[in-house]
């Protein structure tokens, strides 16, 4: 049986984010995407590997990455992430 992949929750605090694009440019798993107005979006949370590099490099402390609890992970799977 394949080992269950770890899931992470990527929380972007809109009120603090200034849409600088650093997370979009540097996430190794390409979790983020720039929206139509250049706004940062968490587009592919399910691809997050939990490396935390976006958290460390966000200039506005707007990002948090936590390991999802099993129920959150299950929810994410059922809702297709």
């Amino acid at each position: 049986m394949a080992k269950a992949k770890k899931r992470f929750r990527v929380t972007l605090n809109r009120a603090w984010c200034k849409d600088c694009g650093i997370c979009v440019a540097f996430c190794p798993a390409k979790v983020f995407e720039a929206g139509e107005r250049g706004e940062a979006l968490v587009a592919r949370e399910e691809d997050c590997t939990g490396c935390q590099s976006c958290v460390l490099r966000c200039p506005d402390l707007a990002l948090e990455v936590e390991e999802a609890t099993p129920s959150q992970a299950a929810e994410a799977v059922t809702h297709g992430g």
Partner: peptide, 15 residues
């Protein structure tokens, strides 16, 4: 918060 610094300013990363 939010930080007073400009968009993309490095200060927040240091903080």
């Amino acid at each position: 918060m939010p930080l007073f610094w400009c968009r993309g300013c490095g200060n927040g990363i240091i903080l």
